[in-house]
Write a protein that binds this DNA or RNA. Structure first.
Lengths: 260, 260
DNA sequence: CGAAGGCTTGATAGACCTCAAACACAGTGG
DNA sequence: CCACTGTGTTTGAGGTCTATCAAGCCTTCG
């Protein structure tokens, strides 16, 4: 799927529904704890929220621009992306989401979606009704703050991506993204040293980096030829993290993670 | 100043300090009211916050990447920008701020700045100490929500800019920004029909659009030649808003403004 | 075995950048 | 009053990066 290809619009959001009082919220607790100290009561408050689990098929949308959701989705497994498209059908992925992310808390405060949310791989999403979540944030300001903080970190990540899109070369953008994913996946134990599963196509990567698929392929070859990375069978390996970080001008500070 | 020029780093943040119990907060009240219904008590709460007014000279920084501010700044007058730079000194402006904006509420929740805040023109900033603001957001969840909402709208704007940077042509990006500024300035009565003061240089515009100064100049000529805009003596006129919006693929929805 | 999706390569075009110089204008000091 | 300076805008020429178009290849899967 190239930037110009509008085929991604055509797919519906078929999904399998299941109801469950689930441990998926543990991922959220874990994530929030990583940046914020939660009390036991607050922890229980979150774990007690009723959720609805849904499986979304790869390539299908979870929410679409213009929708007015009445629930927030938490990524339990799989890869999810936020994206927008121009009227000519050129797509830009603005963020990638993995286990523990709540890519649309914003729907709690902004009624209408200004972007879409799609599953890149098969994904499992835990939905929490706004009606359940809002009372919690109102009565527990610190929990609201924790979520607010999450959205601020998202915004910080946007800023860094903007710097990449506006001022860095194709190779640097790519290396930068690989570094970012490494850091974020490591934070939820999805990276093994400097190696992780990256189950996306080069075309999707192009949509995230603002590049054509062909150019992604060639830039990738540059990085491989420089011995910085390898990527095959859906696994990405960073051979020399130090060097890749310097080359890509990557500084993890914008992720606002606590020291690991 | 081109994207590659690092001279902007060299300027300190000299400023003139004045203390005042001020009406500048009225700008904030007005802004929050535009997207959120405030009760009288909440309104008073905001107006009662002690602020410190500061004049910042054009080109000087208000806060810098790495700083750990203990206060938030509200723009009272002038033009302010958020920016980041690569290690090669290429600068990317990630947002522009005008009267009523609080570009760094985030410092309330994220201790260290991941970007800098600079004055483009002479600007007046009203600072509110975190120690004063935090108790208010903790005791008045709806006020916290109003501010949270502001930050979410910022994030939405980032997403749209990312779409511009990644997938739109230089001319479209430029037209898009002119449309956005028109809408935002109009919301605070700083635009007269489709005309407004735009006191920035082409170089700054390039830093915002991810373009070189030379290319900004040429793209500008294209827009002028097409009869879409004119820009002289610091005033920008949109001659045919409808056509400019279509050309630039501008849809004000991402600004989440209430219907005017 | 054929079809489909993803990856790779080649050739060509165009968008945008860099370097360099000229121009316009306001402010300054002699 | 006029040269002079500084800042911002404009123009030209040439080069690089990235896109587009088109085709071939490889793997998976029915």
């Amino acid at each position: 799927m190239t930037g110009r290809d509008a085929s991604f619009r055509l797919q519906g959001s078929e999904c399998l529904m299941t109801h469950q009082i689930a441990p998926p919220m543990a991922a959220l607790v874990r994530k929030l704890s990583a940046i914020f100290t939660l009390s036991d009561e607050e922890r229980q408050m979150i774990l007690g929220l009723p959720v609805m689990l849904r499986d979304v098929r790869p390539g299908h949308d979870i929410v679409r621009e213009g929708d007015r959701p009445d629930k927030c989705g938490l990524v339990v497994s799989g890869w999810v992306c936020r994206y927008k498209a121009t009227d000519e059908g050129r797509r830009q992925i603005v963020s990638l989401h993995i286990r523990g992310d709540i890519p649309d808390v914003q729907s709690l405060l902004l009624t209408e979606m200004d972007h879409s949310l799609g599953a890149i791989t098969a994904a499992q999403i835990a939905f929490i009704a706004h009606d359940r979540l809002r009372p919690v944030t109102r009565s527990h300001p610190r929990l609201a703050e924790a979520l607010w903080r999450e959205t601020l970190i998202d915004a910080s990540t946007y800023r860094e991506w903007m710097l990449c899109l506006g001022r860095r070369s194709a190779q640097q953008r790519m290396g930068h993204l690989f570094c970012e994913l490494n850091a974020r996946l490591a934070a939820v134990d999805l990276a093994d040293k400097d190696e992780y599963a990256l189950p996306i196509t080069q075309s999707v990567l192009g949509d995230a980096l603002g590049l054509s698929m062909v150019h992604v392929n060639r830039s990738l070859q540059d990085l491989r030829a420089d011995g910085l990375i390898s990527w095959s069978q859906g696994r990405l390996k960073i051979h020399d993290r130090e060097r890749l970080q310097i080359f890509s001008d990557f500084n993890p500070h914008y992720l606002h993670q606590l020291a690991a």
